[in-house]
């Protein structure tokens, strides 16, 4: 009898432990922390293009974004671990000739903390996957990029829009900065504007319309000329430039001016 009671007590204790574990894990999900990432509170976001003539709002769920762009050093660590992504081993369907070409004559540590460039979309996807992360969606990236230093909706300010455009107008001949030496926005994310273009997971969703009966579903409203009449905010030229870049990009391209950072959904 004593034994039965003891067993019963044991079961009860283990149940309590399980229950308290449950509560504990619930508590950690609400205050989840990932090293090197910041939480972007969700919200509503107005994509650049209207749908059926109407500006639309998209809800962005909260997510975690890397504070910094992935650096040369971080990417090289990944490449060491996954040899199929080495410059001399990568399959040509995953990256063009330029892949990691800037690191050939690499001076030991000078470029270590610069954002990695000359990386294809496939390689960026593989890098994020290896970290248990993924590339941000267009909506996630654009949502986080609306923030200036004091407001999540800094993009509403004409001054901030002007500043982004000035950055874009700067010729890309200067060496890239250390990722830590860039401007930080409201969320604590560094270098969203003015350093390099950044990859998004669904860049190949640009130029697709709702009219999927048409042949390749190419979006006529996005072509030159009529483009601006369909935009929700025609003053946001920088968003046009990003949109244009994405829609002309192919997943194996590697560019001197394109880097990336990763996200976690929770």
């Amino acid at each position: 009898m004593k034994r039965v009671i003891f067993l019963y007590f044991g079961l009860w204790v283990s149940q309590v432990v399980v229950l308290s574990d449950l509560f504990a894990s619930e508590a950690t999900t609400t205050t989840q922390v990932h090293a090197g990432m910041v939480r972007i509170d969700g919200g509503s976001y107005q994509p650049l293009y209207k749908e059926n003539g109407k500006a639309r709002n998209v809800t962005v769920e909260p997510f975690f974004l890397d504070q910094f762009q992935v650096t040369n050093r971080e990417f090289l660590l990944f490449v060491e671990q996954y040899p199929k992504w080495r410059a001399n081993q990568v399959s040509p369907i995953f990256a063009d000739q330029g892949y990691l070409s800037h690191l050939d004559s690499r001076s030991v540590s000078k470029q270590d903390n610069q954002p990695v460039t000359y990386v294809s979309w496939y390689a960026a996807m593989a890098y994020c996957k290896a970290q248990g992360k993924s590339l941000p969606s267009t909506e996630q990236w654009e949502f986080a990029a609306q923030a200036n230093d004091i407001s999540p909706l800094g993009i509403k300010s004409a001054k901030f829009k002007r500043k982004i455009l000035d950055w874009y107008a700067k010729p890309a001949t200067d060496p890239l900065p250390d990722v830590h030496d860039t401007e930080v926005n409201y969320w604590g994310v560094y270098g969203m504007h003015g350093v390099v273009w950044e990859q998004v997971s669904d860049f190949n969703s640009a130029l697709v319309t709702g009219e999927s009966r048409g042949d390749s579903a190419l979006d006529k409203q996005l072509f030159c000329g009529s483009g601006a009449t369909q935009a929700a905010d025609p003053g946001d030229y920088a968003a046009f430039m990003r949109y244009a870049l994405r829609s002309s990009y192919a997943a194996e391209y590697t560019l001197a001016t394109m880097g990336f950072r990763c996200v976690k959904d929770r």
Binding site: E51, D202, S205, T209, S216
Partner: peptide, 27 residues
Amino acid sequence: EDIRVLSNLFGVKYKAMSKDELAHSNV
């Protein structure tokens, strides 16, 4: 993510238009 990668290998574009509808290239 894997579906995105494969779609790019085939040059297929797609995008969720609403909860029930996806726009996509017909290839």
